[in-house]
């Protein structure tokens, strides 16, 4: 049955997340998720791991990095309204 896709969440926010490599294969190149207000990047990482079990192991890897606004950031970084977050699985050149 059709219904409103999202209940109003006065305290939460919806953010866009991009993925690359094996994470893009497991989850998709882009998704949107609802996160609580005052979330940090590490919180988003955990929410994604729960929502997309196929990417959980890679997201949990210490070698998977997060990028916000074109810069690599740590898990303690606060997520602001309108942020686009990217998760980069372990990289490998050469």
């Amino acid at each position: 049955m059709a219904r409103a896709p999202h209940a109003p969440q006065s305290a939460g926010r919806r953010v866009k997340i991009g993925f690359y490599g094996r994470l893009a294969q497991a989850i998709g190149p882009k998704v949107e998720v609802d996160i609580p207000a005052h979330s940090r990047v590490g919180d988003v990482r955990r929410i994604l791991a729960e929502k997309f079990p196929g990417g959980a192991a890679t997201l949990a890897s210490g070698r998977s990095k997060a990028c916000v606004g074109g810069a690599i950031v740590g898990d303690e970084q606060m997520v602001s309204e309108g942020d686009e977050i990217e998760f980069l699985p372990p990289v490998s050149g050469g």
């Binding site: 690359y20 490599g21 094996r22 490998s92 050149g93 050469g94």
Partner: peptide, 21 residues
């Protein structure tokens, strides 16, 4: 470059497709 250049490598061939780290 092997460990820090921002690329994601995947081999494709006889055994299908496999990510290389």
């Amino acid at each position: 470059l092997k460990t820090e250049a921002i690329f994601w490598k995947r081999e494709t061939g006889e055994a299908g497709s496999r990510w290389i780290e």
